[in-house]
Design a protein around this nucleic acid. Structure first.
Lengths: 187, 187
DNA sequence: CAGACCATGTAAAACGTTACATGATTCG
DNA sequence: CGAATCATGTAACGTTTTACATGGTCTG
């Protein structure tokens, strides 16, 4: 029961449709939770049935109509309960790490290739996060924004995402370089 | 179908029982994958049925008997296929981040408390990882080990785990301090 | 003698992923 | 005119989590 809280948290930013939420929760760049569109449509329906969010139809001329959702008082209360419940750390589950764990007993070439690829995509994500951070803090510098800005929640999660991808990039680079140096004939 | 590969990768280190694997895959400190014991027993049975691992009974006097498993040639081939298959990055799904995302609209006190707690457990994990790294590299220094040691796979994944927890700690500390400074009456 | 550790499982429920399904509009 | 974007779902399948179940030894 965690997606529900992630959806509620996302809707604190303002009204969103399922489709818009799907972009926020996209694999490629979710700074606090990840989910595919199908999950979101299902969860939104459920949350509305339970009265934690309420939707309103928006008729559009040029595009298909959509439904925008906002958090109700009951939804906010649900979030408060969630925030007061002790949470367990989510643990590592990453295919690429499994491959690296086994790399000594396998042909390292495909693993090296994937590490190098991942380093590039991680670097790209770092840049996207940087732009997101800039947009969030407006014309304030980071220190000032964090001290005085409103809504620092999204900024903080974005910072975490940025650092994670930076570490990811550095580690992938290091691992790829090392494996390459040790197996100069492959790759 | 990824747990199977994680189990195979873990068994490259040597023979293990389900119980021993459970400790390697434990929530509190898995450097490349996480799984609960029940998953492991089920997966081991499946892998054995498919001939990717083979188990042998070990009779013990003082303790319950156990079964130790090793990877077969077919298992190694399966791992090789896996390593050559492009992998998708695993994305963020962390309750604590959801709470921080929403913190501006909630009572920050319980969130701050959780951040501070998490910082402590993350710091503890960093130390455990440091000891694991020391053990893995023996009396070599890191640079030498990474250049010349055998089985650097586990070392690299451990390094990744360490850095992740370090970042986690730093971020939790920063976020907690900031939220505390902004809401001096709570917590 | 209580609690932790060793050791292995079954079963049900919850959750997440993948495939399928539809249809309009805008951009190159 | 094909691809991308907007917009919303259903159904089947696979994976993970949680609860239940058992029983011996070792440590304080």
């Amino acid at each position: 029961m965690a997606l529900r809280h992630a959806v509620l948290a996302a809707l604190l930013d303002g009204e969103y449709s399922g489709y818009q939420l799907a972009k926020i929760f996209d694999v490629s760049l979710s700074n606090f939770w990840y989910a595919v569109p199908q999950q979101l449509y299902a969860e939104l329906a459920k949350l509305e049935r339970e009265g934690l969010i309420s939707g309103r139809q928006v008729i559009q001329r040029d595009r298909p109509n959509k439904r925008l959702f906002t958090v109700t008082d009951a939804g906010l209360a649900e979030l408060a309960t969630f925030a007061a419940t002790p949470s367990k750390p989510s643990s590592i589950r990453e295919d690429l790490l499994v491959m690296v764990q086994a790399v000594d007993r396998l042909d390292p070439a495909p693993v090296i290739a994937q590490l190098e690829e991942r380093a590039v995509t991680a670097a790209a994500k770092v840049e996207i996060f940087d732009r997101m951070l800039q947009r969030l803090r407006g014309d304030l510098d980071e220190e000032t924004f964090l001290r005085e800005g409103d809504r620092i929640g999204p900024y903080l999660t974005c910072l975490r995402g940025r650092r994670f991808e930076q570490e990811n990039r550095d580690w992938c680079d290091q691992a790829a370089a090392l494996l390459r140096a040790r197996a100069p004939l492959s790759g």
